[in-house]
């Protein structure tokens, strides 16, 4: 039996994982793109900090957001993450189309009524339609108006006779409806101007 010298094989001084190595678990080697090296280095640093934190076996306490009295600005990304382009659509964000906006000029002065009968069908007002009545508008000849004649509401075209007295004209070619002549002693008032209408089919 020969005593083998210690110069070959066996333990080599200084070999193996260094004592006090920062990573206290088995490690392996992988190839990463050079460009990502800082990201991975940062990640590992964070990982180590977490590993070395005391009370590891305690349930993790998440940091609660503080309801701060003053606004605090938090940096969105600290570093190394490139922010994307701002959306080119951002500048073009507009309010979605709103039928109210289309139909109503002065909300405070606008009322709706339901159309009954066929006297105004040639002006596009069918039975059941909702008419938009705007009281802020001054009525002119030729306007569709909601008028009050002797205590009764009616929707008609506003006109004048030769003497200048108001007349209310139906809008129906059948001739079934007669114009309403406003004579002295009749109670007459223009309640509002009809500025639009709408209906649903379904």
């Amino acid at each position: 039996m020969t005593t083998r010298s210690n110069t070959h094989g066996g333990r080599r001084v200084g070999a193996g994982r260094k004592k006090g190595s920062v990573i206290k678990e088995p490690t392996t080697v992988i190839r990463i793109p050079e460009s990502q090296k800082p990201v991975i280095t940062d990640f590992l640093a964070a990982y180590r900090r977490r590993q070395s934190a005391p009370l590891q076996d305690q349930p993790m306490e998440f940091e609660r957001p503080i309801i701060a009295p003053a606004k605090r600005s938090w940096p969105l990304f600290s570093s190394k993450v490139a922010a994307g382009f701002p959306s080119p659509a951002d500048e073009h964000v507009e309010k979605r189309l709103d039928p109210n906006e289309f139909l109503i000029d002065d909300e405070e002065a606008t009322f709706f009524v339901t159309i009954q009968g066929y006297s105004m069908i040639d002006s596009g007002l069918l039975p059941g339609d909702k008419a938009v009545v705007d009281r802020s508008k001054n009525a002119s000849i030729g306007d569709i108006v909601l008028a009050v004649v002797d205590g009764e509401f009616t929707i008609k075209l506003l006109a004048k006779n030769k003497q200048g007295a108001p007349r209310l004209l139906p809008s129906n070619q059948s001739g079934e409806y007669r114009p309403i002549e406003i004579k002295d002693g009749m109670q007459f008032e223009i309640w509002g101007v009809v500025t639009g209408s709408f209906r649903r089919f379904k």
């Binding site: 009322f111 709706f112 009524v113 339901t114 159309i115 009954q116 009968g117 006297s119 909702k130 008419a131 909601l146 509401f153 009616t154 929707i155």
Partner: peptide, 9 residues
């Protein structure tokens, strides 16, 4: 209420 607006002919 839509069902209760004035009805006008």
């Amino acid at each position: 209420k839509w069902g209760e607006v004035l009805t006008v002919s």
